[in-house]
C-alpha cells in the first residue's frame, strides 16, 4: 500500500470505520513507514481534541445570565418604545403644522392668482436687475456720448 493511499484512509482508520481487511492493510503500512506513523499519531491527537471539546462544563448560572440579558434587552426595547411614545405628541403637532402650511400655500396659489404673482415678481426682479431702468441718468449720458462720438 502506498503512502498516498494511506493518507486518504487515515481518518477513517482512526475513527474505526474501515473494514477489518482495510484496517489491517493500514496498520501493516504504518508499521513499516515512519512518516505515515508520525502523520497518524499527530492526526489522532488533533482529532482527539474533538472528544475533549465535547465535554462541556457550563458556567454556573448560565441560565440566569441568559434571562438577565433577555430582561435587559426587553427593558431597552420598552425604553425605546416609550421614548417614541413620549415624542409622539410633538411629532404629531409638527406634522400637522407642516401639513397646514403646505395646504395653505397650495390654496393661496390656486385662489389668489398665484401664478400671476409669480410671473409679476419675476418681471419686477428683471426690471430691477436691468441697469438701463435702474440707472436712467447714466444711460442718458451714455447715449448722449455715443451719439456724440458717432457724430
Amino acid at each position: 500500500m502506498k503512502c498516498n493511499n494511506i493518507h486518504n484512509d487515515l481518518i477513517s482508520y482512526l475513527e474505526g470505520s474501515l473494514s477489518r481487511e482495510e484496517s489491517n492493510a493500514v496498520e501493516k503500512h504504518l508499521n513499516t513507514c515512519d512518516e505515515c506513523m508520525k502523520f497518524s499519531d499527530k492526526l489522532r491527537v488533533s482529532l482527539g481534541y474533538i472528544d475533549i471539546e465535547k465535554e462541556v462544563s457550563v458556567t454556573p448560572g448560565f441560565a440566569d445570565m441568559v434571562l438577565a440579558k433577555l430582561d435587559n434587552e426587553v427593558d431597552n426595547e420598552v425604553e425605546e418604545f416609550s421614548l417614541i411614545n413620549r415624542m409622539m405628541p410633538a411629532l404629531t403637532a409638527a406634522a400637522v403644522v407642516l401639513f397646514a402650511v403646505f395646504v395653505g400655500n397650495t390654496l393661496a396659489k390656486q385662489f389668489s392668482g398665484g401664478g400671476d404673482m409669480v410671473e409679476q415678481g419675476y418681471h419686477e426682479e428683471f426690471l430691477y436687475a436691468n441697469e438701463i431702468y435702474l440707472e436712467p441718468i447714466e444711460n442718458f449720458f451714455l447715449l448722449t456720448e455715443e451719439n456724440y462720438e458717432k457724430d
Binding site: N8, I11, K42, L43, S46
Partner: peptide
Amino acid sequence: AKRNLQKRLLDYYN
C-alpha cells in the same frame, strides 16, 4: 469534510 480536513491537517504537519 473528512477528506478535506485530513488533507488540510496532513499538509499542515508536512
